[in-house]
């Protein structure tokens, strides 16, 4: 006795067609998302403001975080040490090597989501003025946000 095919053959064909469509969804999604226009922080995935971005240059790749706090968190959870940390001046957004930048920790929060209070300046005068006006302090020496990063020493 021949056992009836159950479910019918048409179900199998439809199922295979559905699988093909499902397999195409991520490709279509990627095309429509157009991710190249939006860059996200590699620590918490927030959409980045270019003027606050911090770039960590590692061996063969670079990691971009949305601000100093995220960059510090990234470094704390990874063993890789960067050869260069590039930050951006809060006034104008010019890229600066973190060793040459002036960091102020003040009462002004720049990022509501992660509570970042680190401010980056290219010149000492502006940094000191911000520190005075916003109940902050210039962070130097051991207090430098990337002081413990061995790759830079």
């Amino acid at each position: 006795m021949v056992r009836p095919v159950n479910p019918p053959a048409s179900w199998w064909r439809s199922g295979l067609a559905v699988l093909v469509v499902l397999g195409m969804l991520p490709v279509i999604g990627n095309i429509f998302r157009n991710d190249s226009s939006v860059s996200r922080c590699e620590w918490d995935g927030q959409v980045m403001r270019p003027e606050a971005a911090v770039t960590l240059e590692l061996a063969g790749r670079s990691v971009t975080c949305c601000d100093v706090r995220c960059a510090r968190n990234w470094l704390a959870s990874h063993s890789e040490r960067p050869t260069l940390i590039q930050v951006r001046d809060e006034h104008g957004g010019d890229p600066i090597d973190s060793a040459d930048a002036f960091f102020v920790r003040s009462a002004v929060v720049t990022n509501r989501a992660n509570g970042n209070r680190w401010h980056v300046f290219g010149d000492r005068e502006t940094a000191l003025r911000h520190a005075r006006e916003s109940r902050g302090r210039l962070m130097r020496g051991d207090e430098h946000p990337f002081a413990g990063v061995r790759g830079l020493e």
């Binding site: 199922g15 559905v18 699988l19 093909v20 499902l22 397999g23 195409m24 969804l25 991520p26 490709v27």
Partner: peptide, 9 residues
Amino acid sequence: LGSFSLLSV
């Protein structure tokens, strides 16, 4: 299978 196909792609 649909889940596997979508997530692996």
